[in-house]
Write a protein that binds this DNA or RNA. Structure first.
Length: 779
RNA sequence: UGGCCCGUGGUCUAAUGGCAGGACACCGGUCUUUGGAACCGGCGGUGGUGGUUCGAAUCCACCCGGGCCAACCA
């Protein structure tokens, strides 16, 4: 089975690293935290596979925790729904079932801590005022009247909020953080609001309820979660997540939040917010409509859980927002079902065949295997045959296109597991409509025996008219024509985008009799048509009702349709953006750096000195004068090693890249140390590359470059013969690469240099090594 | 418009300064009593421009494009 190797996505890498470093003492605790206000959809399934999957792989646990902090819309039915769906997917939370609402008391206590620290206050302004004062993304917020209430006053008010003294909306508890923060979430976020509502678990015990940003991180921390994995839209919330935990007093090692891109599927609608109107308008039969991408819908359609897991493995986990081709889901379903579904015959839209040369009172039975030769499973059933049969209407063509391999007037076709027949006569009614086909059969071809002297290319399915079962068969197609989740505009009526052919019903379909005795839940392949199972609700009684789970891949209709251009998405980058090359007359300069210089004459002077006296480029001078720290760092380095261009290169490129989120101030070394390092490289003591390794070490652990070189064994190998022998060794170790290189794959030179560097532990001079390599590979 | 995040074949995703690889889709072929499956082969990619480096998808800068954030929702 095609399955990409799991375990290499960025989250698993983080977990691996944390486990290896013993950050949490080897513990791995994840959690799946649904709000019980709707049913689970396939997007949740991705998260379930991720969280439970990681726990399993790392020998940890995954908690199922309901994030039930808002009484509105939450209820027990949805709680049960999630449990059912998660179990169906094949995951188990064991003992670890939790409810955020069970933590309300502890959350209250934590809020009191924040108030006592002066980090939270009761605000009594109206909702509108608060919104007004929060400012906008480009405008700072302004403090309200109540921001400076005393701790005692806040404590008293908060207590009375809980006691139920106030109306909803009268007061809120807010964190006191920073009204000017560029992150809107940090502008004194609301922690608690008053809601006189009955909670489905807590009843009327509470009339204040915590907000997500306050509650969620505490839930994770209370449960000793290690890796709190959520979707990308919570990236901005991480800062607040950390703020709450740090200020309530949780210390490292504590939980941290990581974000991945949620699943978006072509032709599907994935959020509860968008599914609810479909359910309410009755365009689908309910949350379990087989066309919906809810887990209930998928399950009712007949998709096996293995297929969902395979699908989630196939699509991977990353941070790039993306839209997955629905064909991948179909593939995963077929992949699983091909191995497990017994084959039987059914005819959706029958036309009658009369075998004029077959005795009309004769019935014979063919023993037909349930599985094709390439599926290693056993089993057969008996299929009755008589002189009146049904075949699929689309398997007969009066006027066939070229390449058509099924029944045509005067032509032959093989009936699967039975005889070859020939179409002798078309019978029509007065209106000229096709009524039945009169055919003859070749008794020599019984049971699939070969025919002599001619080729019969086509094989079609059939059922005996007298023995067939009549069934209703429902064919499902994508609910939406071409609209991925992200393409819908806010407020747009999604019902207008429904695919009118998303459900087609065949009420008079004919199925071979063997399925009458099938085990409940059996998934079949109706040969040449697709995978089907009995609808678990409407197919329960006497009536036979089948759902199509997924069609078979159909390379015939693909070639006939001469498939027009694929529908492309209207938004989100399907067309390449071509940029005009920009050759600025005067180099572009970052505005904030320019502002910093404008505000600081000394910086401005540095900028002039760097670009004029020192001869640095605009870009370098610009970067080096972003702040006084940078220019001072640079000047100190220059004092040790006075080659401005070189030092500037190290500082603006290598050091900047290595720094990440840290700033120069956090460093355990200063400009002088950088100067020393650059000097050592310039003096040929170590290669530039080795120098970068040293720099990385200095950033992580501090230390003196001179000593580090010795410690890390990076002293340059400049001995030509020593280098040569290493090179010989590398070339011997990769004979086939040498051949490829000589055959023209010149990109391999980098790989050879890399191998030499590896062999010498980074000490070789790559420039020399490359030259030598080039020379050797020539000959 | 401010902040944060993200750009790798048609789609999803690897490569953590050293061979741009895999899967789906697509195209061709072999095989076949399913126009299925399997097998073989093929097409096709680092958003752009500069810079650093022996070497850049990867580091730096600018540009372009996309996403998220101004609920007392989660």
């Amino acid at each position: 089975m095609a399955s990409p190797k799991p375990g290499t996505d960025f989250i698993r890498q983080i977990v691996t690293e944390d486990t290896e470093n013993g950050r949490y003492g080897g513990r791995v605790v994840t959690r799946f935290p649904p709000e019980p206000n709707g049913y689970m959809h396939i997007g949740h399934a991705k998260s379930v596979c991720l969280n439970f999957g990681i726990a399993k792989e790392f020998g940890g646990v995954c908690h199922l925790r309901y994030d039930d902090t808002n009484p509105e819309g939450e209820n027990e039915e949805f709680v049960l729904g999630f449990q059912e769906d998660i179990r169906w997917l094949g995951f188990d939370w064991g003992e670890n079932l939790y409810f955020a609402s069970d933590y309300f008391e502890r959350m209250y206590d934590s809020a009191v801590i924040l108030i006592e620290k002066g980090l939270a206050y009761v605000d009594s302004e109206s909702e509108e005022e608060i919104r007004e004062r929060r400012g906008s993304v480009t405008k700072a917020g302004t403090p309200g009247r109540y921001r400076d209430r005393t701790v005692d006053e806040n404590l008293d008010l908060f207590c009375r909020m809980r006691e139920g003294e106030f109306e909803g909306g009268a007061h809120v508890l807010r964190a006191k953080i920073d009204l000017e923060s560029s992150n809107m979430l940090m502008r004194d976020p609301v922690l608690y609001r008053i809601r006189h509502a009955t909670h489905y678990r807590q009843g009327d015990e509470w009339c204040i309820y915590p907000m997500y940003d306050y509650a969620h991180c505490l839930e994770d921390a209370f449960e000793d979660v290690t890796h709190s994995i959520c979707t990308l839209e919570f990236e901005n919330n991480r800062e607040l997540y950390d703020w709450v935990l740090d200020n309530v007093g949780f210390e490292e090692p504590r939980t941290h939040q990581y974000e991945f891109a949620r699943l978006d599927l072509e032709h599907a609608v994935l959020s509860k917010r968008r599914i609810i109107p479909l359910v309410e308008a009755g365009v689908v039969s309910g949350w379990d409509d087989p066309r919906l991408s809810t887990v209930r819908g998928i399950r009712r359609r007949g998709v096996p859980p293995e297929a969902i897991r395979l699908f989630c493995e196939m699509i991977g986990v990353a941070k790039a927002q993306s839209v997955v081709d629905i064909g991948k889901l179909d593939y995963a379903i077929r992949e699983v079902l091909n191995q497990s579904a017994p084959r039987v015959m059914a005819v959706l839209d029958p036309i009658k065949i009369v075998l004029t040369d077959y005795p009309d009172d004769q019935v014979e039975e063919f023993e037909a295997p349930y599985f094709p030769h390439d599926v290693p499973r056993e089993g057969t059933r008996m299929v009755p045959f008589s002189n009146e049969l049904f075949i699929e209407r689309t398997d007969f063509e009066e006027d066939p296109p070229s390449g058509f391999r099924r029944l045509v007037p005067g032509g032959e076709v093989r009936l699967r597991h039975a005889y070859v027949i020939r179409c002798e006569k078309i019978i029509r009614d007065e209106a000229g409509r096709l009524v039945e086909l009169h055919c003859s059969h070749d008794s020599e071809s019984r049971g699939g025996k070969g025919v002599v002297g001619r080729k019969v290319k086509g094989t079609i399915q059939w059922v005996s008219a007298a023995h067939a079962l009549t069934a209703e068969i429902r064919l499902y197609d994508h609910l939406f024509l071409e609209i991925p989740e992200t393409d819908l505009d806010e407020g747009e009526d999604i019902i207008s985008r429904i695919n009118p052919d998303s459900l087609r019903v065949f009420k008079e379909a004919k199925v071979e009799p063997s399925v009458r005795d099938s085990l409940p839940g059996t998934r079949y392949q109706f040969e040449r048509t697709g995978y089907f199972w009995k609808d678990p609700i409407d197919g329960l009684g006497e009536e036979l009702v089948f759902n199509r789970i997924v069609s078979l891949k159909d390379s015939w209709s693909r070639t006939t349709a001469k498939s027009g251009p694929k529908v492309t998405r209207s938004k989100s980058g399907s067309e390449k953006v071509v940029n005009e090359p920009i050759k600025p007359e005067t180099p572009k300069v970052n505005e904030s750096r320019e502002a910093a210089r404008a505000a600081d004459p000394q910086l401005m002077a540095c900028f002039d000195r760097y670009s004029n006296e020192l001869g640095l480029t605009w870009e370098q001078a610009d970067l080096l004068t972003a702040s006084p720290e940078v220019s001072e760092f640079f000047d100190k380095a220059l004092a040790v090693y006075d080659e401005p261009a070189e030092v500037a290169g190290w500082l603006t490129t290598d050091l900047r890249g290595l720094l990440g989120v840290r700033s120069l101030k956090d460093l355990a070394f200063d400009g002088e140390a950088l100067g020393q390092l650059v000097a050592l490289v310039a003096a040929d003591r170590i290669s530039r590359r080795a120098g970068k390794d040293v720099l990385a070490r200095m950033i992580d652990e501090g230390g003196d470059p001179d000593q580090l070189i010795v410690q890390m064994g990076l002293e340059k190998v400049s001995d030509l013969t020593a280098l040569e022998s290493v090179i010989e060794e590398v070339l011997r170790a990769w004979p086939e690469k040498v051949i490829e290189y000589r055959a023209g794959k010149s990109g391999l030179i980098g790989m050879f240099v890399g191998e030499v560097m590896k062999e010498t532990n980074g000490a070789a001079d790559p420039k020399v090594a490359r030259e030598l390599l080039l020379k050797k590979l020539q000959g």
